[in-house]
Computed example of a mutant assay.
Amino acid sequence: MSEERILTPVQAVKDALDVMMKSDENVVVLGEDVGVNGGVFRATDGLIDTYGEKRVMDTPLSEAGIVGAAIGMAMNGMKPVAEIQFFGFIYPAFEQIMTQATRMRYRTMSKFTVPMVIRAPYGAGVHAPEIHSDSMEALFTHMPGIKVVCPSTAYDTKGLLISAIEDPDPVLFLESLKLYRGTKDHVPEEKYTVEIGKGYLAEEGEDVTLIAWGAMMKVALKAAEQAREKGITCDVIDLRTLYPIDKDIIAASVQKTNRCVIVHEAQQTGGLSNDIIRIINDTSFLYLKSPVSTVTAPDVHVPFWALEKAYLPTPERVMDKIQYVMDF
């Protein structure tokens, strides 16, 4: 039986990197302060001592340079894991991702692939400065050629990150700042994988389907607990992968419960909830007893810390929407 430890998600990130760097010399880590300082959140702490500066590389402050270098490494047989210090810093690298990383397999008729991972901490609720807390995953789910992963538990963080590093194509790996040290669970010591593209039914119910990912899973589960006190039971789906989305788990749940509430901390307009609603309309429209409802951030920039609580979805707001779809 495998040994299991209680880890936080940020510890699970380091664990996954250590496992993969130990087993595959082509795996390298690069980014701002990932080496000597061990990363701003200590996700890579100590790796440079084990694997040296040729495999754990501190880079200049250039997101375009970090991603561009990683693309070149990946095309030449390496498996780079590039860290963007905060997801909101990724904008200068958008061109490299959109026009190079995601298109290389298509452009070269699969003669070249780009097996790279871009790790990026995201999300509000930690009182970070401007641009540090953005949640714009939908910009990348609109990009053919890249997978987008967003775990909510330490177990899934390790398993999905290992899967991402082993994937032959680029993967954007989003890590919730709020969950980095805000949750713990059992994580096996050995190498294991969690399949990219498969959601997880975190809680089972009969009346309403709640769909969330990342930090919003804690909000959805708390809302499901409040609903239970009122005699309403919820399926709570953790998507885990945002692109490609697990359409089957969504359809199966909505066809059972006949109602759905989607929760995400990105702004509403252009958010991933729109794609999920499309999936429900395509697969399960005639099963619905009420319109699909959403709980999201408003269409404003992430505010300064004093207003973060007003900006983010809360269990109470989700509970209000659960009651709405039940009463419709």
Rank of each mutant, 00 (worst) to 15 (best):
I232Q: 10
V302R: 01
V56S: 07
P144E: 06
A212Q: 08
Y51W: 05
Y287S: 15
A224Y: 07
L30W: 04
L210W: 05
T314H: 02
R119S: 00
K289M: 11
P151F: 00
G46N: 13
T241E: 09
V149R: 01
M143N: 07
N37A: 10
H186L: 15
H127C: 13
H264C: 07
L210D: 09
A202S: 13
N37V: 03
G205Y: 10
I90M: 13
P9V: 11
R107A: 02
G270D: 10
V67T: 03
S273Q: 12
A124M: 06
E189S: 15
G199N: 06
G46C: 04
D275N: 13
G145A: 04
G271P: 06
T50Q: 12
D248N: 08
K218C: 01
L160F: 05
A101Q: 10
Y106A: 01
Q96G: 01
I146N: 06
D235Q: 09
L174K: 00
N274Q: 11
T193P: 04
V292E: 07
K191W: 04
V263W: 02
Y91E: 08
A220L: 00
T8N: 12
Q226D: 12
S290R: 12
M78L: 15
D327K: 14
V27F: 10
S284P: 03
M21P: 08
I71P: 10
R5Q: 15
K184M: 10
R55W: 03
A266L: 00
T113K: 11
E189I: 15
Q323C: 14
V29Q: 09
E83P: 05
L177N: 08
M1Q: 05
R228Q: 13
V67G: 01
V302F: 07
E25S: 14
T59S: 14
Y287A: 13
A120G: 04
R107V: 06
K184I: 00
E53R: 12
T183I: 15
A164N: 03
M98I: 04
I118W: 03
P151L: 07
R317P: 01
K218N: 12
D24C: 09
G199D: 08
G72R: 08
V19H: 02
L139H: 12
G197F: 05
P291K: 09
N76V: 00
A124T: 09
C150F: 00
T209W: 00
I196Y: 05
M109F: 02
I165T: 07
I211P: 08
L172Y: 09
V40T: 13
K14L: 14
G125L: 09
P151G: 08
F89E: 13
S163I: 11
L239I: 05
F285N: 01
P80C: 04
S273N: 12
F112H: 13
